[in-house]
Structure formats: C-alpha cells, structure tokens
Design a binder for these strands. Structure first.
Lengths: 147, 147
DNA sequence: GACAGTATGTTGCATATGCAACATATTTCG
DNA sequence: CGAAATATGTTGCATATGCAACATACTGTC
C-alpha cells in the first residue's frame, strides 16, 4: 500500500537524517567560529589545505567528495582573504598546489579553542556512540578515494 | 604544541566528517532521483510536507533545523513546480499551512522506487551500525524541537 | 484599548554546492 | 610523431543555506 510506503520513507530516510545532522552540527561550529570571521566550510577547508600539504584543487575535491568547481570557488575566497596561496615552484601541467599563508596558519591556530568548544558540543549531540560511528564511516569514505 | 593540535583537529573533527557524509549520501539520492526531475533537498521537502500535514513554513523549519528564510525560498520552488500549495481555509495570522497537490503526491509516489535504490546504497555506505546510529541521533534532534 | 512582546514570513546579502560544457595541459599508444 | 584518452581548472546556470533587518499579525498585560 502506498500510504505505508510514504510512512516508511519518512520514518527511515537516511538522506533526510544525515542532512539534518550535518545542518545541526554545522550550526554549532558556525556559532563558535563566528567571532573569528570564519564559517564552517571555510574552517574545514583551511584544515584540509594544512593537512594535505601542497594539494591541488582536484586532490582536495576527491578528499572531500566535492565537485572540482566547488573547490575553484571556495578556494578563490580563501585566497582572496589572504589565508592560502598557490605554490609557484611546484606547478606541473594545470595543477596548482596550495598552501596556507602565515596569516592562514595564524588564523587556524587562533581558531582552535573555538573548534574545541564546538567539538565538545557536537560530541554531546552525537553521543559517544555517534562520535565513533561518524569517525568510522568517514574513515571508510576517505579510504575509498584518496590515493 | 600547536602542530599536535592541528593534527588532532584533522583527525577528529566532527564538522568535517558529518558534512562529508552528508555530501556523499546526498549525491547518492541525487543520482537515483535525477530522472524524476527532483533533487535531494526537494525530495526531502516533499516528504516533510506530506508527513507533517498542513504545517506552515515555520513549523517545517523547526522540524528540519533550517532557517525560516530557507523554507520561504525552497517552498517557493516547490509551489512554482505545482507540487504543493497553501491551504486557504486554514490560515491564521501570518501562518499559511501547506499541503501537497495531486501532482506532488503523484510525483512522490513515483519517486519511491528511486528512493529505495538510494536507500540501499546509503545503507551500504553507512553500514548496519551507522544506519542505526544515524536514526537514533536524528530522533533525538527532532524530539528536542518539535512540539 | 494601547503597548510590549512574540510569531510568521520575506528580502538583501553572502556563501556553498553540483552539473554541463568548455579550455588547456599531459599522457598513452598505435 | 599525432590522435585519443585523461587530468586539471574555470565558467554559466540553478539551487541551497543562513544571518540581519524588516513587515505584519497575533497575544498578552496593565
């Protein structure tokens, strides 16, 4: 019966639930980062640029499961804010490796206390079990695609 | 030491991980829904309008943990596609309750097979444990805010 | 009944996201 | 070598998302 199927969707849909959780968690980090003039996606991007080390846009897009064009634009903002730059010495082909600037590094370090506050709040929302599960799922996702 | 702290952020950040998972899952449902001319957020909204029954924008925004203005715009699209409408009889104050049109109901039912395919794929990505955890977290989140 | 507080909805602004199509550079192979 | 396949990056287009500020309507409370 179709009415039953609609109920099944509403009661079990993993799309609605994962997106709900992501919005909720994003808003927590947004709140804590607000005073730094940094939002959640921007903070995440700084972390990835820092940890991946001289990665280009394509590599970051694979790591993050994002479209390349999204990275083109988000990184444009990060560069225009002076938080990252292209490493001129290491370009090959069309690839343009990225690294944080001093200002970017400084901002990232300055943001760590806010991140910690947000992280604690997020852990409460997800519960101990949720934290472990989220980490384990993310680990699998990144294993599949990052060289 | 600060270098250590950066590593801790990269290795544990729940913001990056929940957003990564949401993007991944969203792309799965987007793929399966594509032929229906419907994307993931739009499908989710149809489901919510259907299940909440005559809810207004504010109520939906609370249920979904979204900004009211987001609902103003997303619902504008849903209405312009002819999938939902405002229930004229039940307005009070500024509140304008919503319901699916026949076309919206028809589309939603037609989308169920695609949803099922996507749901199976999502279950594989999240694993049995992940599915249960996601459902349990979402349940808690919605308990906190819905009347 | 008037005024403050609260609830609903919208608009302006900025950013985030993905797809399709394209430009460009490299690599592969016959 | 040269054409085809592959990789990187960008642009146009459409949608999603949230904040701040505003308009509007209801709800007390005195």
């Amino acid at each position: 019966m179709l009415e039953e199927e609609l109920k099944e969707v509403a009661n079990n849909c993993l799309l609605m639930r994962t997106r709900l959780i992501a919005r909720m968690i994003t808003s927590i980090y947004d709140q804590e980062l607000q005073t730094l003039g940094l939002n959640s996606p921007q903070f995440s991007l700084l972390v990835v640029i820092s940890r991946l080390g001289n990665a280009n846009r394509s590599e970051i897009s694979r790591f993050n499961h994002q479209d390349r064009s999204t990275l083109t634009r988000n990184i444009r903002l990060i560069i225009s804010e002076g938080w990252a730059q292209e490493i001129l010495g290491q370009m090959s082909g069309r690839s343009r490796p990225l690294a944080l600037t001093d200002a970017g590094n400084k901002l990232l370090r300055k943001a760590i206390p806010a991140w910690k506050k947000a992280q604690v709040r997020a852990e409460k929302v997800l519960s101990r079990e949720g934290v472990n599960t989220v980490k384990s799922i993310a680990k699998n996702l990144q294993m599949r695609t990052v060289k």
